[in-house]
Design a binder for these strands. Structure first.
Lengths: 129, 129
DNA sequence: GCTACGCTCTTACCGTTGTAGTAGGACGCA
DNA sequence: TGCGTCCTACTACAACGGTAAGAGCGTAGC
């Protein structure tokens, strides 16, 4: 229960809370942009479900509207996502990296960043060994 | 339709076909190992659903048993998975790489492989530019 | 030929996700 | 004080994924 599984839409909602801090349902819904956003009650349903999953909680009220805030951290959620993803690849990390890298979509700057991260990691591993 | 979304169990089934070539349901089921494998008919149901999704097809019969073979390629499926995953992160690649790298689970050899891939990619991008 | 075993097909059920409608309470403004 | 608006709370429902049982048919061995 510490780490409930979050679906895509649930994550998008959590993102709003992570980015903006405590937020009302109306504001979450409007943050989806005017095109093709879900209905107010759709967002509401997802928020309620996130509440039962203990991913967020009611922080306070403004008028008769509840203001919700995140309970789980973005990092925890992303770690969970990564696990999920890895399990799809049989838990082996290397093919995943390869796939991601080969899938392109990386700007030269991204490549540089990734390389730096890898070098740091390699250095750390060496020191540990 | 060219590219159906595959769930985790569906992928595990496809993996058997990708690894072993055309396979009967019984053999797919047994490839899950004796512990906690799904029932024969569960595998069968998933295979049938993969068939309607056009992810695999009936290749031939042996006795009264159908032999199934993959229609979609492993690479295509994995590319699709990567897309799915990226969309969870808002489509931005760099944070994903960072998360994966920081999530650990990489052997030194994995790191080296990834670095090499990145260097090759950087070189290719430079040449294109 | 009869029987048993394996495979096919069909059907079903539950949980999750995405979608939304509706009823009713509260609030603010005219 | 009454009307429109906004929010809550509840209910509904379809698609999908995972799970599997049950009925029936074909084949192989006796």
């Amino acid at each position: 229960m510490a780490f409930p599984k979050l679906s895509k839409l649930e994550l998008q909602i959590m993102d709003v809370l992570w980015n903006n801090g405590p937020t009302a349902i109306r504001d979450i819904q409007e943050s989806f942009g005017p095109k093709g956003r879900p209905a107010y009650t759709t967002v509401q349903t997802m928020v309620y479900r996130l509440e039962t999953k203990k991913a967020l909680r009611r922080a306070r009220k403004i008028g008769n509207a509840h203001i919700f805030e995140a309970v789980i951290s973005r990092d925890a959620a992303k770690a969970r996502l990564v696990d999920e993803f890895l399990s799809m690849f049989g838990g082996r990390m290397q093919p995943v990296m390869a796939q991601l890298i080969e899938a392109g979509n990386l700007s030269p700057a991204d490549v540089a960043d990734a390389e730096k991260l890898l070098r740091d990691l390699a250095a750390k591993k060496k020191k540990e060994a």
